[in-house]
């Protein structure tokens, strides 16, 4: 028998869930709404919710002023490239940490994570100098490499935890069945970890997409992604909130759409654990 839940209880839970949900979505929703207002309506007090003259003017201004497609293309290449490269490196790394751990594995994992605790500014100069001498400044290749390295600890950690969930016995069975190491990873481990790998990829694309320190500091005109596109609409002297909102909406739209279409995969990946 299913436990019976009273209607009142249900209604209360629904309300709470919706409230929390709305609170989380509100900033994004507000940005999108603002992007359809005029600058004067954007700063109106009291704030205007739905009843204002919707306009597409901000979008046409933004479109006219900046080459959105170039920023978008850079974002796609940088986020996608760094994630794929990261996955290629992290899968074998996480495999060895999860299934043939050494005495130092735990230390290495912690050490990797600790690199994330160092403020990025601290290594800006060395990396900038390195980029200059390698000719990587303002190139997509350079950003792919840097973002890959920045996110590698997270990719390895996520894959490691997913791989840990996979019973060792299954991999041992593959070994008994004559699979080589490559076949074991390719035919057994990877397919089983697909939900985990997929959500790792997705999360890292999002992280790379929104990464705003290195992408701003290592690019100029050629390789600048959408973060630079947004930054170019932020102004301390002058009220351009509606245009900034339009630019932000355009910048997050692709990732929102990607997230929307893969949310099943993502939820499955994040609640991964029942493989047996």
């Amino acid at each position: 028998m299913a436990r019976s839940v009273s209607t009142r209880r249900k209604a209360l839970n629904t309300i709470i869930a919706w409230t929390i949900g709305l609170m989380i979505v509100f900033p994004i929703l507000w940005t999108i709404l603002t992007s359809f207002k005029t600058e004067a309506q954007a700063i109106n007090d009291p704030p205007l919710f739905f009843f204002f003259d919707w306009t597409l003017e901000n979008y046409s201004v933004v479109q006219e002023r900046s080459d959105y497609m170039r920023f978008l293309w850079n974002s796609i290449i940088i986020a996608g490239g760094s994630t794929l490269l990261g996955i290629l490196i992290a899968v074998p790394a996480a495999w060895s940490m999860a299934f043939v751990p050494s005495k130092r594995t735990k230390d290495i994992l912690l050490w990797m994570l600790s690199t994330k605790m160092l403020p990025a500014v601290g290594v800006l100069y060395p990396i900038y100098l390195l980029f200059i001498s390698l000719g990587l400044l303002d190139t997509r290749v350079g950003l792919v490499l840097v973002l890959m390295l920045i996110n590698l600890p997270i990719i390895v950690w996520m894959l490691y935890t997913y791989f840990k969930e996979i019973p060792t016995e299954i991999l041992e069975a593959a070994r008994m069945d004559g699979a080589t190491l490559k076949e074991e990873i390719l035919y057994v481990l990877t397919p089983m970890a697909i939900p985990g790998i997929a959500s790792t990829i997705l999360l890292n694309i999002i992280l790379a997409w929104n990464e705003a320190f290195w992408t701003l500091n290592l690019t100029a005109a050629q390789a600048a992604p959408l973060t630079a596109f947004i930054a170019s609409y932020s102004s301390p002297e002058g009220l351009f909130y509606a245009k900034l909102s339009a630019a932000s909406t355009m910048a997050i739209a692709p990732i929102l759409i990607l997230g929307w279409f893969s949310q099943k995969q993502l939820v499955r990946g994040l609640t991964f654990g029942a493989v047996k």
């Binding site: 701003l216 100029a220 005109a221 050629q222 630079a228 930054a231 170019s232 932020s234 102004s235 301390p236």
Partner: peptide, 13 residues
């Protein structure tokens, strides 16, 4: 080619 940035970001950059 223009690189437009927020004032403080620009200064650091």
């Amino acid at each position: 080619e223009w690189v437009t940035l927020e004032e403080n970001v620009l200064r650091q950059r």
